[in-house]
Design a protein around this nucleic acid. Structure first.
Lengths: 240, 240
DNA sequence: AGAGAATTTTATCCTTGATAAAATTTTATC
DNA sequence: GATAAAATTTTATCAAGGATAAAATTCTCT
């Protein structure tokens, strides 16, 4: 009962746990929430179902672990990266997200699906709250950088602006994670929302810069993507 | 086989169907998605499970019907209501939502949970798309009213602004539907987001009006929590 | 009233989350 | 190195929930 020991047993457990989480992400990212069931997960990881319970916990805990993974990963990989230009620094959240999403789509898509699922399930989860608190803080510090550079008037409470950006950012992430659009469209949307929000409290020169950037974003591939995939859904036996 | 007949049979079926949907809403609004299972639903409505399949369809169709209900209800109850003031007209979406949410919380909460669930489930649903397309259109026409009144500069594509407002609006609705905050907080958030977005492209005088309104909104406490955890650096100056 | 159509119910299947108890593997002690 | 104890994995099984076929019932129309 040596608690410190990095024993064979402990190492194997960690390895199995890692495999389980990796497979959970793969299943989630590929087939969405409904594709993640404990039997398939166990089989994919080469263990049996009760082992999942032993190594991770109930299904909710699996999702929680997937969601928690993204936070540590992101915190580790997000450089402090103080850009010279405060606008670029502020936009860094979006640019970084875009890069990460493009590099490891499976990882982030899975994490996002997990988060959205957990958030929907009644209870409050500290992990989920922490993730968005982290995004919110980044947004707010971006705002602060702009304010310090004299680019922002200061008529609107920064917290309120940060909250707005965070809300719309989350929706943009959702759209990507759910497969409504690709990562480029995600970047366009998130960056556009960000610039527009900044415009709301921007000094005149800064505002001109922002509107120019917004015009650039709107570029070629139009939108209309998300809401037009209207495949007629036949209602059975629905006589009106 | 008279299709037109408003026969006893048809009338009873409609009545049962109505009871089923009403009970579905009740179960959803009270216990969230997990509380809505077909057996309980059938029992609550005084029928058996296969009857649900006959009158409505599979579980997904029940959710779809609940979601669809909100659109017809809202379209019916939303007056054309051209306010004298274009700002008020633009904000009408939020004010109307607030009123409806307060009047029939069960109905709207259920519809929202249904929509969010459907949206998460991989497939595209025309009903869901239509609901948010409708919101987006209202937002855009509000913007148009402001533009026609000369309150908006026109540097930012209205569609992009409308999309931003719609995204954040949806998140605010979510928060209310999931019980993260009450209807007053919902109104504050949604209205605040709306005003900030308008600020982004507002003529100077209009912008002053908006920031004043924003300051008014921020008013009294409520709850800090929600999801952001942002500590406000309260900008209190600018009282004018 | 009675034939035939439409609807509801009875009975049952299958998937999936969850867990107790047995079997196995690892650790610690002599 | 053998063996007892502890920890972990597996076998077997339950219960809940979505879904459906087939029987029973109700309604319509002549």
């Amino acid at each position: 009962m040596n608690a410190l020991a990095d024993s064979v047993r402990t190492r194997n457990m960690q390895k199995r746990r890692g495999r389980l989480l990796a497979e959970a992400r793969r299943l989630l990212a590929r087939g969405g929430y409904e594709a993640l069931n404990l039997r398939d997960l166990a089989q994919a990881a080469g263990v049996t179902v009760p082992t999942i319970y032993n190594l991770i916990g109930r299904k909710e805990d699996v999702l929680l672990a997937v969601a928690a993974g993204v936070l540590s990963e992101v915190e580790a990989r997000t450089a402090p990266a103080r850009a010279a230009d405060p606008l670029d620094q502020a936009a860094a959240v979006v640019e970084t997200s875009t890069r990460l999403f493009a590099e490891e789509p499976e990882f982030y898509r899975a994490a996002f699906l997990a988060v959205e699922w957990l958030d929907q399930g009644g209870q409050h989860h500290a992990e989920v709250a922490r993730i968005y608190a982290w995004v919110g803080d980044l947004m707010e510090s971006g705002l602060a950088a702009c304010r310090d550079a004299g680019l922002i008037v200061g008529d609107i409470p920064p917290a309120q602006m940060a909250a707005l950006i965070t809300r719309s950012f989350r929706m943009s992430c959702r759209g990507w994670a759910f497969g409504h659009y690709d990562v480029d469209e995600f970047r366009r949307l998130a960056l556009g929302d960000f610039y527009i929000t900044l415009c709301a409290d921007a000094v005149e020169t800064f505002r001109r810069r922002l509107t120019r950037r917004i015009a650039t974003l709107a570029a070629p591939a139009a939108q209309a993507s998300t809401s037009t995939g209207l495949r007629a859904q036949v209602h059975r036996g629905e006589s009106q």
